[in-house]
Design a protein around this nucleic acid. Structure first.
Length: 698
DNA sequence: GTCGGTGCCCTTTTT
DNA sequence: GGGCACCGAC
């Protein structure tokens, strides 16, 4: 069956599909049929007789890659399994495994995730005796600094001066920790997420024959979500494609939301310079959302400092405007949202409804409400499946079987045993590496449990069983430990173990299983059931639903208070909201609580509507508010014209507003201390008591 | 060295 | 409300 491309695609899409040779940049607005274009182009390539093996498809998640291949197969009625693809990280991992000896990793290597990396940093901090110093950042902060500076490819000093000036005084200590971290990984054959990319880059750069092999192999390269690639990813593409290569990059500068990871829109802007002769195609017709939703999203974008020359248009008429719903608190918001979901569920299946939010914790109250009512859901973003303590423990045992040189696994796994702490693990590891049986024996002398476990692991190592069998064996050790360790929520955690076993059953190589677990932690159960989706906006990228509800549109939550210091970051928050809103096909609801629960003071603190909400023209939306009886009523017209008055703790209107100080910058007024002082919270300097004369109120 | 208790801090987003 | 660092007891 021949595909009638001209019938299925619009003119711009068609052009992108037919342009196979040379560099191509597709600027695709939200909902403009980007995925469709890639799918048809892939199909067209295969139809032209290109081997699937010669095509490389780099996407943001492996799920996205799999989905595209599934659709191509549907289209062609033919197997295209040979198409290489996945995330940059998983692709880099696969290639490094293949050419391990070329980069001196022939004894194998382990991919470590964020928490492993933080453990190493914690170790460095302790062993360099830097943990005694008051005010010295903790391991999370240090990890963040290191990872961010590496992603942006800045020296630690430059990064600190630009982003964390107050930590500059610790520069020498932080550099020592960084060196410790780098050396530790080298010694133990560990690669973190950033190393995967940098090591892969140097492989391509230094080994001409391998580079040429890959250039021959991957004759056609397609990269999705190009706006979210960082510098090293951009260089990898260049190396992979060579001078005259056939590469298509697809992206949308207005949807760039990974700046914190060093992603840079410059990559899109520079693409034509990097690849001379680039053909640029713009996709501007939106096939996803109704016109009223688009009018709102276009408006959100129009307020951006940086201008995106975009005018998305749609032929999907509708009289339903997006809604803004003001609730009395973030806790009542959860109830209002649940009722809205039930109302929507009369029109749409649950799987067509999504609740989106800025950060993982923002859905906790909602999750509790949903559990109460027995509405099941999938949650994406926030803490990962593979980051749960019991899964990490299990994985540590598996790693110990796969690679006994993995020191992190020794401590994590064996630390679970009675009477075994960090020091014992350290010694066991050393004894093992030196092949010193005597020490191991004496360490096991008073600990029969330890001896048994070590023997079991030793046996497993030589049996080369399937990942699932190893996991089952490990559970004979870890099962009893788990029962003791997690008494209150054992059933839930056991379900996690079941899930891990199910995932394991699809692998036959333990190394690959373990790497995938840290590279693609969202390998969850198939999305087959009709379930509601809760997701961070970051994890919702590239997806769409009929109805989308967005929570907590208040200052300090969306935009995040951590973004408030930097105009650039606020702009990224705006694009984030844009991404969230453009996920919606027919219904869009924005929720604005008037107060947010403060768990640490057990109080409800007043919250101001997000600046992004305040700038919305009333005519674009329909506004509602929650009454004190929990009913939802339309907001009166007269109230709509003026911004909603903020709940105040005292009568003075400056409280809750922002003010400017010559030295401290912008801060939030916490309280008025009569007659002429103010308590102000400055993001960089903390709480200050300041005389009125020194402040300019906004 | 290990374990258990207490007090403190911070709570973004992802590979 | 939980994870982490610290401290004193075995």
């Amino acid at each position: 069956m021949k595909i009638d491309y001209a019938k299925e695609l619009n003119e711009a899409q068609l052009e992108a599909v037919y342009n196979l040779e040379g560099p191509l940049l597709v600027i695709a607005g939200a909902g403009s049929g980007k995925t469709r274009t890639i799918v048809y182009r892939l199909a067209y390539l295969v139809e032209q007789g290109i081997w699937p093996e010669n095509i490389l498809l780099l996407t943001f998640t492996r799920k996205a890659a799999a989905e595209m291949l599934r659709r191509v197969e549907e289209l062609l009625g033919r197997d295209v399994a040979g198409v290489g693809g996945g995330t940059f990280h998983s692709f880099a991992y696969a290639m490094l495994r293949k050419f391990a000896s070329a980069v001196g990793l022939n004894q194998g290597f382990t991919v470590i995730d964020t928490s492993d990396a933080k453990d190493i940093i914690g170790q460095a901090r302790a062993s360099l005796h830097l943990d005694k110093d008051k005010g010295f950042p903790n391991k999370n902060t240090i990890y963040d600094l290191i990872s961010r500076s590496r992603n942006k490819e800045l020296a630690l000093e430059d990064f600190l001066s630009a982003n964390s000036y107050h930590l500059l005084k610790f520069l020498p200590e932080l550099e020592r920790i960084f060196n410790y971290y780098q050396n530790f990984k080298k010694e133990h054959f560990l690669l973190d997420y950033d190393d995967l990319l940098f090591t892969f880059e140097s492989l391509l750069q230094e080994k001409a024959e391998i580079r040429e092999f890959m250039q021959q192999m991957f004759k056609y390269v397609m990269v999705d979500e190009y706006q979210d690639t960082n510098l090293v990813q951009g260089r990898i593409i260049k190396l992979l494609v060579g001078e005259q290569g056939n590469v298509m990059a697809v992206g949308d500068d207005a949807q760039s939301i990974y700046g914190f990871r060093g992603a840079t829109v410059e990559n899109i802007l520079n693409f034509p310079k990097l690849f001379p002769g680039t053909k640029i195609i713009k996709l501007e017709q939106n096939y996803r959302s109704t016109q009223p939703i688009l009018e709102l999203t276009n408006h959100i974008l129009k307020q951006a400092r940086e201008k995106y020359p975009k005018k998305l248009f749609s032929h999907k008429k509708s009289s339903v405007k997006p809604e803004i719903i003001y609730t009395t608190s973030d806790l009542s918001q959860a109830q209002v949202v649940v009722r809205k979901i039930e109302e929507l569920a009369r029109t749409y299946p649950y799987s067509e409804i999504a609740v989106l939010f800025r950060a993982g914790y923002q859905s906790f109250a909602l999750e509790m409400e949903l559990v109460k009512l027995g509405i099941s859901f999938y949650k994406y973003g926030g803490q990962k499946f593979s980051e749960a303590a019991h899964i990490k423990d299990l994985v540590a045992f598996l790693r110990l079987v796969a690679n006994p040189c993995d020191i992190l696994a020794w401590t994590r796994a064996l630390g679970n045993l009675k009477g075994v702490g960090p020091k014992t693990c350290q010694r066991l590891y050393q004894a093992f590496m030196e092949g010193n049986q005597e020490i191991s024996k004496s360490l096991c002398a008073q600990k029969p449990e330890l001896k048994e476990v070590l023997e079991k692991l030793e046996n497993l190592r030589f049996k080369s069983l399937s990942p699932l069998s190893v996991l089952e064996e490990i559970m004979t050790i870890y099962g009893p430990i788990m029962e003791e360790k997690f008494v209150d929520d054992l059933p839930k955690r056991m379900a996690g173990v079941e899930q891990l076993m199910q995932i394991a059953s699809t692998y036959d190589n333990l190394d690959v299983f373990l790497a995938d677990l840290s590279l693609e932690p969202s390998l969850r159960e198939e999305k087959s059931k009709d379930r509601l989706v809760l997701s961070t906006i970051h994890s919702a990228k590239g997806l769409e639903w009929s109805a989308v509800l967005i929570l907590d549109l208040v200052e300090e939550r969306f935009p995040s208070k951590l973004a408030m210091q930097d105009p650039k970051e606020i702009e990224e928050e705006r694009r984030l909201l844009y991404v969230g809103c453009t996920r919606a096909r027919e219904y869009l609801g924005l929720f604005v609580p008037a107060t947010v629960y403060n768990r640490y003071q057990n109080s409800f603190d007043p919250a101001s509507p997000s600046p992004f909400i305040r700038e919305i023209i009333p005519s674009l939306v329909k506004s509602y508010k929650e009454t004190y009886f929990g009913e939802i009523v339309p907001l009166e017209e007269e109230k709509k014209e003026e911004p909603k008055p903020r709940p105040e703790k005292n009568n003075f209107t400056a409280t809750g507003n922002y003010c400017e100080h010559k030295i401290f910058g912008t801060g939030k007024v916490i309280a008025h201390i009569p007659p002429n002082k103010y308590k102000v919270n400055f993001p960089q300097f903390g709480l200050k008591l300041v005389l009125e004369d020194y402040l300019t109120f906004k």
